[in-house]
């Protein structure tokens, strides 16, 4: 560059025209999102990529072996004799939980939405398990559901011989679902209650003038108008049902047999109890696939059953 001609172009004016207020604002925007985005890259994207890589390797932490096996873990996945049982248990748990949770939440919300005195007390009671520590809650229920626990004691007073709830395959699954629903139904109940209270009162008055019965009002007005909330809560509940771990670990440890071994619990066992990290990673990929597919399914079905006034 020739130095004898001083460049006049880098005047303060030109620089200011690059560093415009708009650019400054963009810069501030990036600063604002920097911590969150960094966190998501480091704790979500990188682990996802690593997991995909691990799933292609045979990795036994105890033995200290790490070797590339290509789709070996996925072949193992396809032939794992325990896996169909695990998926069946996961499906039973999720379906049972979602149906029971949403219908009980709706029932409780409708009850609380009647203009009765003292509903605040009931609302507080129904919500209270949400704030009880999850493991504490599971411990108490395990205590209650034992062969000689509180529930069977009450049944015995009624001359009923209660089963050993957590040791029978069917009763164990039912118990785990009920414990989880009672713990968390308050959240959905509160969301439903808010949605119910948002339904304009004059719609019911108009329906009454049109001669609609209470049932008709509920199914033709209430349900369509709260359907966006139902969609939201069902997505949250389905996703949550696939992540259940602590309850299973405390209540049944996946048993009896593998009757309550849901996918996350199986993943934990394979990776952290049997130290098959590579196989654990491929199980995680499977879980990711299931969550993604279910969320996509619910989202694309929303047009069919959710009333949307946009």
């Amino acid at each position: 560059m020739a130095q004898d001609h001083p460049l006049p172009s880098i005047s303060p004016d030109v620089r200011r025209s690059w560093w415009t207020p708009a650019r400054r604002d963009h810069f501030i925007g990036y600063l604002f999102i920097l911590p969150q985005i960094t966190g998501l890259v480091v704790f979500v994207l990188v682990p996802l990529a690593l997991m995909a890589w691990y799933s292609l390797n045979e990795w036994n932490v105890l033995a200290g072996t790490f070797s590339f096996v290509g789709l070996g873990n996925y072949e193992k996945l396809a032939t794992d004799p325990a896996l169909p049982g695990v998926l069946w248990a996961s499906a039973c748990f999720s379906v049972g939980l979602v149906l029971f949770n949403l219908s009980l939440a709706l029932l409780l919300a409708v009850l609380l939405n009647q203009k009765l005195a003292g509903t605040v007390v009931f609302r507080t009671i129904f919500f209270s398990p949400v704030v009880v520590s999850l493991v504490a809650w599971a411990i108490v229920w395990r205590f209650l559901l034992q062969q000689d626990g509180g529930i069977n004691a009450v049944l015995r007073m009624l001359s009923i011989d209660g089963p050993n709830w957590l040791r029978g395959p069917n009763t164990a699954m039912v118990s785990v679902i009920v414990v989880q629903v009672v713990k968390n139904v308050g959240l959905n109940m509160v969301l439903f209650l808010a949605a119910l209270q948002n339904v304009p009162q004059e719609l019911y008055e108009a329906a009454r003038v049109d001669g609609a019965s209470r049932w008709t009002q509920f199914f033709r007005i209430t349900v369509p108008l709260i359907s966006p909330t139902v969609l939201l809560t069902s997505i949250i509940t389905v996703a949550g049902s696939l992540q259940v771990f602590a309850q299973i670990a405390v209540l049944t440890e996946g048993g009896p047999g593998t009757s309550t071994t849901v996918l996350v619990y199986y993943l934990y066992q394979q990776a952290f109890q049997f130290h098959f990290f590579g196989y654990g990673a491929s199980l995680a990929m499977l879980l990711l696939l299931i969550v993604g597919a279910l969320t996509y399914l619910q989202w694309s079905l929303r047009k069919a059953w959710v009333y949307d006034n946009d």
């Binding site: 992540q243 993943l267 969550v291």
Partner: peptide
């Protein structure tokens, strides 16, 4: 902004249990 927000939505849909193995290793 839209692209970066997609990242947030991704985080929203990924159960943290899924990434427990690589997180442990990291």
């Amino acid at each position: 902004a839209n692209l970066l927000f997609m990242l947030v939505l991704t985080g929203l849909l990924i159960p943290s249990e899924v990434t427990i193995v690589p997180l442990f290793q990291m």
